[in-house]
Design a protein around this nucleic acid. Structure first.
Lengths: 106, 106
DNA sequence: TTAGTATATAACCATATGTTTATATAGAAT
DNA sequence: ATTCTATATAAACATATGGTTATATACTAA
């Protein structure tokens, strides 16, 4: 692959928050406010991390009414599956979100 | 895996020069001065990039007389092979080095 | 239209990063 | 011992990055 593209990919993954986001999206698509709730960070911060991931083509977005749902993309990287599998399991965080009624339903 | 360790790994890979180094080492172990020659960068710059790669446990070193040879490590990352395979082929650069007599022989 | 919610963008700031120049260390050769 | 070669480290600087606050945009609901 092109070094430029690979560099952008690894730059996008070179941050704890963004790895957390990818680890969460591995379970299911989530909207910005859900990520804000789970990761306990400000909305602009999460949005900017998502933008980086999107620019690197690691996530894609889907609008549904006022929410924008993000999910894993990564088609273009042959190694992406192996990398995602190494991320820690975050299912508990998602369960907590659902239990606390913080899940957007639509 | 631990997020801390993964972040360090991707930080180490999030640089064009370091991806170049990994792509080169994929073919064979090389010493610092060979990397300097191939990548046309200053020796301190290459040394510092190698230090980052070493700290992330992506490369290991072996001293032989006055030279220090670096090679791929990455044992600790289950995904490392898939990632290395996506790097561009640099065999031509190594051939050029050998042809120009710049290869250290020992 | 107006108010409310979700998200994005911009401006600002502190910290991290990569490069350069200068210097230190380690081993080899004389 | 002294000199030479290979490599590492340190200091300085410019640029990149991530977080915060403020504001803009997009959609919904009344």
């Amino acid at each position: 692959m092109e070094l430029e593209q690979l560099t952008e990919c690894y730059k996008a993954m070179a941050d704890r928050t963004r790895l957390n986001i990818l680890a969460l999206l591995r379970h299911e698509e989530l909207c910005v406010c859900e990520l804000v709730e789970i990761l306990q960070m400000t909305q602009p911060s999460i949005s900017q991390h998502l933008r980086k991931l999107k620019q690197a083509k690691l996530v894609k977005e889907r609008r549904n009414s006022q929410w924008i749902f993000y999910s894993i993309d990564g088609e273009m990287y042959p190694f992406i599956k192996a990398n995602l599998e190494a991320l820690p399991d975050m299912s508990e965080k998602i369960e907590q979100l659902k239990a606390s009624g913080g899940k957007v339903c639509c």
